[in-house]
Design a protein around this nucleic acid. Structure first.
Length: 216
DNA sequence: CCCTGATTCGC
DNA sequence: GCGAATCAGG
């Protein structure tokens, strides 16, 4: 596989959308995340709004180099992308990982004002309607209130992954209405071997006894 | 252990 | 230019 214009375009798009290198690699196919990262750097579009600031936040600093070499390499590097903001074309198009949106609502959700605190994260996920009544969940009326309560709680922290973002270790519990944009997968860490996170395993797999005992 | 991105360097 | 290997952080 080579970097055709088309593939590069996809790369640029996804990278600017905040997709991880591995996700982009999967999407493109035929390349590893290393290849993607390598290309990203070669394209000079490395820093995309301080993604993880883990390493090399000041990599762009030209003077940061001790430069023991006799020849001081120019090193373009920076180029200051200064994107004019990625046009919020589609409202709920891509699922943004949203660092820490909700403070922690107590009981009733729904109240979700756009607490626009302009800090370091420019790309804030559009929080749309919110608090929709959950679509019919499997056997919801036969599940222990405790389990349901836990699900309700953890779903507030759901990572809201799209179908493509699911991996073997992300909870595949669907949330919302598949017919609309208001749909995502839980995405929290799976219970190990299970397809769901702990809370969702609780509602997905019920002990027989539990079901019988609560027979009406 | 899973994941991230960054960097190096032989090809 | 490319990307595996490696590094480093979460």
């Amino acid at each position: 596989m080579s970097w055709t214009d088309e593939r590069v375009e996809t790369l640029k798009k996804m990278w600017s959308e905040g997709q991880s290198a591995s996700q982009i690699a999967k999407e493109l196919g035929g390349v590893t995340r290393n290849a993607v990262i390598g290309k990203v750097h070669r394209l000079g579009l490395s820093n995309r709004t301080a993604a993880s600031e883990a390493a090399a936040p000041a990599a762009a600093a030209p003077a940061a180099k001790p430069a023991p070499e006799p020849k001081p390499e120019p090193k373009p590097a920076a180029a200051a992308p200064a994107r004019p903001a990625p046009k919020p074309a589609a409202p709920a198009a891509a699922a943004r990982p949203a660092p820490e949106p909700a403070p922690k609502p107590e009981a009733e959700p729904v109240t979700d004002e756009a607490a626009d605190e302009v800090v370091a994260a420019p790309m804030r996920r559009q929080i749309i309607p919110a608090g929709q009544p959950l679509p019919p969940q499997p056997s919801a009326n036969e599940i222990s209130p405790e389990a349901l309560a836990r699900v309700g709680e953890i779903e507030k922290h759901a990572k809201k992954l799209t179908l493509m973002e699911l991996t073997e270790r992300t909870c595949k519990w669907p949330i919302g209405d598949p017919a609309t944009d208001d749909f995502w997968f839980c995405g929290l860490p799976t219970q190990s071997g299970k397809p769901y996170c702990e809370a969702h395993v609780g509602v997905a797999f019920q002990p027989m006894s539990s079901r019988r005992d609560r027979r009406r």
